[in-house]
């Protein structure tokens, strides 16, 4: 298996505050990498560094053997890496299908082709029944699915999901878990998932990295992570360790 993404000694400082310091790990093609950590640990900052929203203060990000740190997010998207947002960002006044079409237009100039591609992705997330509904009026669960469909429409090789299950009820979360597993089964798309729902992340991840206070605390298979005393300490405090 080839390495698709390599994060090498990435640090991000905001003034004197280190949101990430010296984080390194890599992703193999086709795997699902889970990322966990307490609130404020720097998971989303790391996502922003990887996808081009912030240039890392130190270190570099290598995607498909190419250095991408310092590139703009739109370039990175066209190279084949796309992210979703923890706080959903629907194009509120546009319809569901138009939202996904904006993603699809990344690979085509034809509206007709884009519409077909978008419809396919809507079927993947099971929202093909309401293409003309305005995205801003959808319930949160469907907005999250729309984020995924829109990201998939850009035809990525690497999909970064930032808390897609946050704020969802158990049934909706389960649907997202199925969706993530289906994407994996479909092949061709590597995924990195930030999640707080431990049960979910243990179920879907091939490997997990734990971020705490901006640093990588541990990395390993789900089994190794639950048995790691340092991880337990970070989550539950010294008393339980």
């Amino acid at each position: 298996m080839a390495t698709i993404l390599e994060i090498k000694h990435v640090s991000k400082f905001f003034g004197g505050l280190a949101a990430n310091s010296d984080v390194s790990f890599s992703l193999e093609e086709g795997m699902i990498m889970g990322m966990i950590g307490p609130n404020g640990a720097g998971k989303t900052t790391l996502f922003n560094c990887i996808t081009g929203y912030y240039p890392p203060s130190r270190g570099e990000v290598i995607f498909k053997a190419q250095k991408i740190s310092g590139l703009e997010p739109d370039r990175i998207c066209r190279l084949g890496m796309v992210r979703t947002w923890q706080k959903v960002r629907p194009l509120a006044k546009l319809s569901v299908i138009d939202n996904v079409m904006v993603g699809a237009l990344c690979r085509t100039n034809s509206l007709k082709t884009a519409r077909e591609l978008a419809m396919e992705q809507l079927k993947v997330v099971r929202m093909e029944n309401k293409p003309d509904f305005p995205a801003g009026g959808l319930p949160i669960g469907e907005q999250k699915k729309l984020e995924v469909a829109r990201a998939l429409a850009t035809q990525p090789q690497l999909l970064l999901l930032d808390e897609v299950m946050g704020g969802l009820n158990p049934a909706e979360s389960d649907e997202i878990i199925q969706l993530i597993l289906e994407i994996k089964k479909g092949g061709g798309i590597t995924q990195m998932v930030i999640e707080h729902d431990m049960k979910a992340i243990m179920r879907i991840s091939d490997r997990i990295v734990v971020i705490n206070s901006g640093e990588k605390l541990a990395e390993g298979t789900p089994q190794e992570i639950v048995n790691n005393p340092e991880v337990v300490r970070a989550y539950l405090g010294d008393f339980h360790a």
Partner: peptide
């Protein structure tokens, strides 16, 4: 319109 609705989202979509 994507830029109008959400600049950051538009940016992330290429």
């Amino acid at each position: 319109q994507a830029i109008r609705e959400d600049q950051d989202a538009a940016h992330s979509l290429g």
